[in-house]
Design a protein around this nucleic acid. Structure first.
Length: 645
DNA sequence: AGCACGCCGACT
DNA sequence: GTCGGCGTGCTC
């Protein structure tokens, strides 16, 4: 008989009732190491399920007879101990399943890639020498950032060198510092553009073999290849978007989350963990440091600092370019110039365009994001689903922003009018108008559909939606920040944070002596941005949320399902001290969603209760919509504000 | 999920 | 009498 003939297996299933371990017999001669993928029978089902071997045991405490493992899919231990422990902790925190977390952390197996990897012989890589500390950084800050175990909010430098933001160059230096001490580093950035920029920055310090890049464009098998690379045991620098935070590297020294306030760090798949939370859990598990890096801190980062949980690097404002809110200007006229620009901004752009590129940041994607009836001004809505109609390009037909239904012809539901006109402006229309306002100047468009990481340092108008701004070689010679008012009008909990960070990123892309113009907004946010005191505004916001008991001062859980089931569960959790409901909204059919809030202190207890209820509900065999729970979903809170019962 | 077991209606 | 409807329960 083989040593430890029992294998404890976790099925790769999204079903809450199957998210637990089952014991199996390992047949003689089968090699099923801990962490490998196996195929096992589950219940009376004819087909086999895949799962992970979590443990090997001498014997099982299961009363009945054990089934044998059918097959070892691959003997590679793709699930490491540390990732498993992190996944368990994360599942607990999010009131979700361990298997759900593992689905995010471990890519599906690719046979050919694996075969090649198993056959390859690898040489020990050269360890780089430590880099010099970035200029303008105190040695205390640098030591703090490089020391494992620390938690730090890193205020990045403004400006660019070539096509690399200074901030990204500094992060690359930090990664090199860790690697020089034979520690791995994970760099998690919001999106494709940041991966591309950061990869450039890293390659100026490191060899390609030190780097493992998880870009979103990878095929599944390439993704699996990167996963295997992390398992080789040598220290590496991992760079990628949110899934990279799970990379199974060894000797983890630091996880750097870049722009942790960016929406892209929220996982849209169950159990909806945020990159920042995954990083903190892995830090608990490994003792690595966590660095939240950006040009404006997230409101969560501000909370961490104020709690004393995180330290922060010294803020240096000396390198920050000037921000000029045209509406607050005391001198000059503010008559609109062509292309929706105040005259001061128009003149400055014209001047800057003589020598280099000018960034125009707009809020909305598409050509005309909102359409209204020409006759009565009512919002044009989709006849199929009631969603708002929009136009993505000049000349393209109107389509529904929700269901994508095309509306070649339009009939206003209010007045029977048959024509629409745009209200508000998207990139497309701004591009068209600026083209006319600045004749002879090339206009470059950058948005979700026209993706650009960099542009040359030559005169051009670069019109970009917020978040899609390319880096200009040598920095922009001016920036026009449009649509500030529209951004702040939105009724989301995150408006302040998103508005500030959107502007600050644009400011960071300027040449050191260039100016950013805030064109259509005044008030405290514009004033703070101009003065570079956005952080104190966030701090005020946090204080307000604390008194209102809103996230991130408290945690929330969205509970969805049939009204009766939700009601009972909410009643149940509300018996805990400090747990109460923020309101209920109706979903499709008879389902409802109720949001409860709770202090951090008792959130683990509540999460456990919620998870138990979900498992019970799934097991109950009741027909109809299942009970679902989603922790810390602030978007659900926004929706609640829009349509509470 | 997927499958079997089980307990009531119309049927060769 | 029994074939088969799908409500109920469990999966090592």
């Amino acid at each position: 008989m083989a040593k430890r003939p029992v294998a404890r297996v976790l099925p790769e299933s999204r079903l809450p009732q199957l998210d637990r371990v089952f014991d199996y017999v390992v047949p003689d001669g089968m090699d099923a190491p801990v962490g490998c993928r196996v195929k096992v029978p589950i219940g009376r089902s004819a087909k086999l399920h895949t799962g992970f071997v979590l443990e090997r045991l001498e014997s099982s405490d299961f009363g009945g007879e054990l089934s044998p493992i059918d097959q070892v899919l691959s003997p590679v231990s793709v699930l490491t101990d540390e990732v498993l422990e992190s996944a368990k902790a994360l599942a607990k925190r999010q009131a979700g399943g361990v298997a759900d977390v593992l689905r995010l952390a471990i890519p599906p197996r690719a046979v050919r890639v694996e075969k090649k990897w198993l056959e390859a012989t690898r040489e020990a890589p050269i360890i780089p020498s430590p880099p010099a500390a970035p200029e303008a950084m105190s040695s205390a800050d640098w030591e703090r950032l490089s020391r494992p175990g620390e938690k730090t909010v890193w205020h990045l430098r403004h400006g660019v060198a070539g096509s690399t933001p200074h901030g990204y160059a500094d992060i690359a230096a930090l990664a090199t510092e860790h690697l020089a001490h034979e520690r791995s580093v994970i760099l998690v950035v919001p999106d494709w553009r940041d991966i591309s920029l950061m990869e450039q920055a890293l390659l100026s310090h490191l060899q390609e073999e030190h780097l493992v890049v998880f870009s979103s464009e990878l095929t599944p098998s390439e993704h699996y290849a990167r996963h295997l690379q992390c398992l080789e045991g040598r220290p590496v620098v991992v760079l990628g978007s949110r899934h990279a935070v799970y990379a199974p590297v060894s000797q983890l020294g630091a996880i750097v989350v870049v722009s942790d306030g960016d929406d892209a760090h929220r996982e849209p798949l169950a159990p909806y963990p945020h990159t920042r939370d995954v990083a903190l859990i892995r830090a608990e598990q490994t003792g690595c440091s966590v660095v939240l890096a950006g040009w404006t801190p997230s409101i969560e980062a501000v909370r961490f600092i104020e709690m004393g949980y995180f330290g922060e690097t010294r803020v240096s404002m000396s390198s920050r370019p000037r921000v000029f809110p045209t509406r607050l200007a005391l001198h000059g006229s503010d008559d609109p110039a062509p292309g929706r620009l105040p005259s001061a901004a128009f003149a400055a752009a014209k001047e800057a365009l003589r020598t280099g590129p000018v960034l125009v940041q707009v809020f909305r994607a598409g050509f005309a994001p909102g359409l209204v009836c020409t006759d009565c001004g009512a919002r044009a809505r989709c006849s199929e689903c009631g969603g708002p109609l929009a136009q993505s390009d000049a000349g393209s037909p109107a389509s529904c922003a929700w269901c994508q239904h095309l509306h070649a012809r339009f009939h206003c539901a209010e007045c029977r009018g048959g024509a629409v006109r745009p209200s508000g402006q998207g990139v497309g229309r701004t591009v068209t108008e600026l083209g006319k306002a600045f004749p002879g100047v090339p206009v470059v468009r950058a948005d979700g559909e026209h993706r650009l990481a960099t542009v040359p340092g030559k005169p051009a108008l670069v019109v970009a939606t917020r978040g899609a701004e390319p880096v200009a070689d040598g920095g922009y010679h001016a920036a026009l920040l449009l649509d500030g008012a529209a951004m702040l009008q939105r009724s989301s909990l995150d408006v302040l944070e998103e508005t500030l960070s959107g502007w600050e990123w644009a400011v960071s892309l300027l040449k050191h002596d260039a100016v950013a113009y805030l064109t259509d907004i005044d008030g405290p946010v514009a004033t703070a941005c101009a003065a570079g005191t956005g952080v104190s505004l966030l701090s005020d916001e946090l204080r307000e949320r604390t008194s209102l008991r809103l996230p991130p001062a408290v945690r929330i859980a969205a509970i969805e399902g049939p009204a009766a089931v939700v009601e009972e569960l909410v009643r149940d959790v509300s018996t805990h001290d400090g747990v109460d409901s923020l309101g209920r909204s109706r979903l499709e059919g008879t389902a409802v969603r109720e949001i409860v809030r709770m202090p951090y202190r008792i959130a683990p207890e509540v999460a456990e209760l919620l998870r138990a209820a979900v498992v019970r509900d799934a097991l109950s065999g009741r027909r109809g919509a299942r009970l679902r729970v989603r922790m810390d979903d602030t978007r659900a809170l926004d929706q609640l504000a829009d349509g509470a019962l």
